[in-house]
Design a protein around this nucleic acid. Structure first.
Length: 453
RNA sequence: GGAGAGGUGGCUGAGCGGUCUAAAGCACCGCAUUGCUAAUGCGGCGUAGGUGUCAAAGCCUACCGGGGGUUCGAAUCCCCCCCUCUCCGCCA
């Protein structure tokens, strides 16, 4: 994912918490850790929250959990009584019947009151539960600051220019590769027209990425660009509210997707799979729409941070086993690296530190490309292993022959190529002294020329 | 967008206000039996939560597309929504 971690990856929590569990902003709508797991591993969870810089009242959670269980027992007993009573009514004579019906009516009220109480406790409980982030891979670097993420490896050499390199803004203007003014006129700031070779590059990058991921067994999808609210919620996005990153369509429950992670993850919402079907490897092409709320003033020049871009995304469902999802995570990162190595873009791989993981990720690697125009590294991809955190909310489970019941699968997502960021990296790294831009070898079959200008 | 039909357990499919604790069949598993393949009989066969236990068994509750309502009692009646199929309209 190419995204501002502060705003999207962190997925800020709601400010207000409406009481109804079905309310779109209700905390239960977020992915979360299993309640029983938290209860049984309270110390480990507490330690993890601390590492991630998240404050949670686990004592309160424990209290509420006990209250909840007691209430469930009580409510179930009341319902049992009610059922028993009802079954007597058909056989009763008229006199006792009236009395029984009356008693039943009272029982119904009791049950309703208990249920109401249970709901209240559940709301409070889930509010805490939803604030608890996923557990963390033992090898992930512990740290609070973005700078504490660890560069695990670097590939390629930042190009040395014997001239003053231009940034993508200058390059795009010079070669008429985009039209920001027209974009703003048509749709507002943050929207843009790609033009000329940039259009060909966009198509070429998609083709190139799609060919590679397909080679690695990812099933290609071109996905809807909109999704229902409950799909957004299932994948852990907050569709509405003040700080949302998501555009929603008025008077409907539809939203513009921020990534194909949402649509691909949604494909198996509430499904029970057979463990033998796993892993499932999906790739999706979609447009991505992001409001970038709260991101004003940060790198707003050009197309580094925009409200819409096109992306090829990888998504995987694996067996509920950390060894499995870990291996898939490595594979996804390897594919991302293969893509950027093929493009000849220098990059480094960051092992994201605990404080910057966001809620759902168990571990996350970002690729940052060298961007000469910024004279620094810039995020181009992001790959997360969400273990079962997202699947719990999505309701994607699997059955394995030897085990009773079902387990939540593990989900992973990663960027194959996000067009705007990749475009910046290509343009800036391949610029020449004469102002022209060389087209990377691997893209030429689709671009149809070897340089711009 | 309009009209009609329909969504029930892994699948087929009955039930249309009161042991539904969901019939039956298929599939699947176990046992028995028949010298093999196969057939037959018997039993089992879901998910989630709670309780219980060292663990389990067991017991309780919920779940018949989703949500809400009526009722002592709802798969069954009422309202809203979603989806599928057929036909019509519109359209790239």
């Amino acid at each position: 994912m190419v995204t501002d971690r502060q705003t999207l990856a962190a997925r800020p929590r709601r400010a207000l918490c409406p009481a109804h569990p079905r309310h779109p902003l209700h905390p239960s709508r977020k992915p979360m850790l299993d309640l029983q797991y938290i209860y049984d591993n309270i110390d480990a969870v507490a330690k993890n929250c601390e590492n991630r810089g998240v404050k949670v009242d686990l004592d309160q959670l424990k209290t509420l959990r006990d209250q909840r269980n007691a209430l469930i027992t009580e409510t179930d007993a009341a319902r049992h009584a009610s059922k028993e009573l009802s079954s007597k009514i058909p056989k009763a004579d008229a006199a006792t019947k009236a009395a029984l019906v009356d008693e039943g009516r009272k029982l119904r009220e009791t049950i309703a009151a208990l249920e109401e109480k249970q709901r209240e406790i559940e709301v409070a409980l889930k509010e805490i539960q939803a604030a608890i982030p996923n557990m963390t891979h033992p090898d992930a670097p512990v740290g609070r600051l973005e700078s504490e993420s660890v560069a695990v490896r670097t590939w390629g050499e930042p190009p040395k220019f014997d001239f003053e390199p231009l940034d993508h803004v200058a390059l795009c203007e010079k070669h008429q590769l985009y039209d920001l003014e027209a974009g703003a006129r048509v749709a507002g700031h943050g929207f843009y027209f790609l033009k000329n070779e940039a259009v060909l590059l966009e198509l070429a990058l998609i083709q190139y990425a799609v060919q590679i991921v397909r080679k690695h067994g990812f099933t290609l999808h071109s996905t809807p660009d909109i999704a229902r609210q409950d799909v957004l919620e299932g994948t852990g996005y907050q569709p509405r509210g003040n700080e949302t990153q998501i555009y929603s369509i008025k008077d409907t429950d539809l939203c513009l997707v921020a990534t194909a992670e949402i649509t691909l993850g949604g494909t198996l919402k509430d499904q029970v799979l057979n463990v033998e079907q796993l892993p499932l490897k999906y790739a999706g092409i979609s447009h991505c729409f992001r409001t970038e709320a709260g991101a004003h003033g940060k790198a707003t020049r050009g197309i580094y941070r925009v409200h819409q871009f096109t992306k090829v995304e990888l998504f995987a469902f694996t067996a509920p086993d950390v060894a499995e999802s870990d291996a898939m995570h490595q594979q996804i990162v390897a594919i991302e690296e293969e893509i950027f190595q093929g493009l000849g873009i220098p990059y480094r791989v960051l092992d994201i530190c605990t404080g910057d993981l966001g809620g759902p990720a168990y571990r996350k690697y970002d690729l940052e490309a060298w961007m000469p125009g910024r004279n620094e590294w810039g995020e181009i991809t992001s790959a997360s292993n969400c273990t079962d955190f997202q699947a719990r909310r999505l309701g994607t489970r699997c059955k394995s022959g030897d085990k009773k019941g079902t387990q939540f699968v593990h989900t992973l997502n990663g960027t194959a190529v996000a067009i705007t960021r990749a475009l910046i990296a290509v343009l800036e790294n391949y610029q020449q002294a004469d102002g022209s831009i060389v087209i990377p070898e691997v893209l030429r079959p689709w671009v149809g020329q070897d340089k711009i200008g």
